[in-house]
Design a protein around this nucleic acid. Sequence first.
RNA 1: GACCCCAUCGUCUAGUCAGGUCUAGGACACCAGCCUUUCACGCUGGCGACGCGGGUUCAAAUCCCGCUGGGGUCACCA
Length: 484
Amino acid sequence: MAAAVRTRIAPSPTGDPHVGTAYVALFNYALARQHGGRFVLRIEDTDRERSSSEAETMIFDALRWLGLEWDEGPDVGGPHGPYRQSERTEIYREHAERLVAAGAAYPCFCTRERLEELRAEQKASKGRFGYDRRCRAVDPAEAARRRAAGEEHVIRLAMPTDGEIVVADLLRGEVRFAAEQIDDQVLIKSDGYPTYHLANVVDDHLMEISHVIRAEEWISSLPKHLRLYQAFGWRPPVFCHLPLLRNPDTSKISKRKNPVSLNYYRRAGFLPEAVLNYLALMGWAMPDERDQFTLDEFVAALDLAKISLGGPVFDLARLAWLNGRYIRDLSPEGLVERLRAELLGDRHLLAVARLAHERVETLADFVPYAGYFFSGDLAPDEAALGGMVMRGRTAQETARALREVLSEALDPILDWTAATVETALRDFCARHDIKPKELFMPIRIATTGRTATPPLFDTMAVLGKEICRRRLGLAADALGAVKA
RNA sequence: GACCCCAUCGUCUAGUCAGGUCUAGGACACCAGCCUUUCACGCUGGCGACGCGGGUUCAAAUCCCGCUGGGGUCACCA
């Protein structure tokens, strides 16, 4: 009897919930459902610097919005918990020690400074990149003494130094790597936390994951992972690396060039079933090439082996078309229901009403006054573009400034409120020696299309991060395209 | 740069594994027409691709090699 199919999605809660996470989750979910198996959600929060609970909550919300329910996870429990890696550090430490005892891993006392120098040298001499394995030569007894004395160190995996490592990928078959070119990966950081590579392998084994379906960017670390399975004496799961979603210019999908936050799609009025359906079309097609189908139909028809490997360009226009079909399939009553669920829900309506109620005279003024709170992308016209150009600067310079506002001030905000936005924006002005006045009008016009609006930060708070980011990005693009 | 992956219309793809039925099919976008008081939907039609060069074969989009191109990875981030 075949072993149970167990799949997982293992996102890192370090930012906004990513469309790539949904893409990978979809295929994992579908495979598990197809085989009556289990779909696990595991939070990989081993980067103490960047992980946050806000980001984790957003991942839960986004996945649930899409309807990709998990059977085991941090919030629903399960027999293989805990499902948050930060709560499993003892397990990783124990496993790392096992490897050290077996000689498959070793403590490394090299300082960050030395590693940086090493990298610089290697770069200059165009030599091989990676750690030079110096600490591998340290006598184990001496290493143990130094560790006991509290000397700062990491634990590294001892990779074979010659021969070939052959890994198997469900879609690509055997892939070969020369062992010597694989780095001695850090397994345990000096803060005692594991790196992805260790935690991931240990957990996939302990959680009895049968199929690891993840993005292609991981394929080059597969030799390390395989080595870990061997060193532990475990049977590796089936690996299946999905192609990477792409920007229109075919680079790996990024927020600079494409909306990547699932929050954007939700807020911009995309239906979850349409988003899922569209994602299923990335690298895969129904046997009859039908382009509209339900999640259940996908679950029934999915054949992993039929995934095509060319990186699919994420095309908003095609998603919008699909979304339109789903909307047309709704009854008018159904449409109203959907509208009330999100865009015209009491929550959003009330937030807008708070800003609009002293600025309208009749109820009928409300819709035209507050229209931009209920729409998605804004296409700035010439007048708007003119109004956006900052005093004493060119359109291009303004575009650059707006992009910096995005990446430096706005993107990092996970707790999006009028207060956090205001602080971020004022800090930005101070840092760049810009008068707030000069920056705020362009932002106002970019985010609302108007020169007169309720207070900017309140307005941006109600608009939400994703709508603001997209409108600012679009405005920057339009300004950048203005002939100097 | 090194290593790895990939390669069909602008985009998503079917066809490639088991070579002939492929003068390469469908969808998005675009263009035109029809429907229609308008717009949209819908319908019909059009534009549009096997990256290049060698092989193997009676026959290659399909198999092999090289080139070119694109992408990813080379962190005490995942």
